[in-house]
């Protein structure tokens, strides 16, 4: 079996185990509010780090200007509470147009 398939299966099994937490623990364990808050904050920190590296870097280097510019436009749209689909299409369109204009 190839290594990538094994990674996918491991990710799937682990994720399903996390998702079973509710049904299995229902009525047995109550997570302290502090732990719940910390879990939420950790998820936020991970997501922001992921989007920052995803916007700015490719491999081990700088991703070029077109991608972060598109993400920035998507961020402004999201901040102004534009619908989700508009955010996605807006970010991709700006990046595509900048590349069409010759920006890397």
């Amino acid at each position: 079996m190839n290594a990538q398939l094994v990674a996918v299966l491991a990710l799937a099994a682990g994720t399903y185990a996390f998702r079973l937490a509710g049904p299995v623990l229902q009525g047995r364990v109550e997570l302290p509010a502090r732990v719940q808050e910390l879990l939420g904050q950790a998820a936020t920190v991970l997501l922001v780090a992921l989007l920052a590296t995803g916007a700015l870097t490719a491999g081990h280097g700088f991703a070029g200007w077109a991608r972060p510019a598109g993400v920035l436009v998507g961020g402004v749209l999201a901040w102004r509470r534009a619908p989700f689909a508009v955010v996605v299409v807006g970010a991709a369109a700006v990046t595509a147009l900048l590349r069409l204009a010759g920006l890397p």
């Binding site: 936020t44 961020g75 970010a91 700006v94 595509a96």
Partner: peptide, 30 residues
Amino acid sequence: RFGLDAAFPAVLLALVLPALRDGRGARRAA
């Protein structure tokens, strides 16, 4: 060419914005 590589970070940004909007601690940590 279609700028799809910018879509994913933008989606994440849209998803975390509510959490960033109301938590100063979360904003600083992030």
